[in-house]
Design a binder for these strands. Sequence first.
DNA 1: ATAATGACGTCGG
DNA 2: TCCGACGCCATTA
Length: 112
Amino acid sequence: MTEPAARPADPIADFASHVLDVVDAIPPGRVMSYGDIAEYLAEGPGPRQVGRVLAVYGSAVPWWRVIHSDGTPAPGHDEAALSRYLDEGTPLRSARPPVRVDMRRARWTAAP
DNA sequence: ATAATGACGTCGG
DNA sequence: TCCGACGCCATTA
């Protein structure tokens, strides 16, 4: 091999990859919280890092299906998110600011 | 190396 | 219901 050294495993990139994969698997009309995803991956550093991944790579996945544990969408994107929710028929507890998804009904578990 | 920041979550007032 | 304080942890200044 002409590689200078074994490619250093990038735990961060690996984590990000898994996060994006999970988000992409959330069906329309359903949502997961940052904490849910962190818990599902179970080896991730925590919910905040899930948020970081979405802040950077979120444009490539259905980011509006990832919200806070209290049902409120990502800060600064509540307007765009609401539009998606209405379109997907996501159960809402409040369709007017503060926009809130009905977590009890909309919460999705990354079922295999 | 220490401090501040951030697409979080939980608790107390 | 709304807001602030803490704890958490990678990234940035």
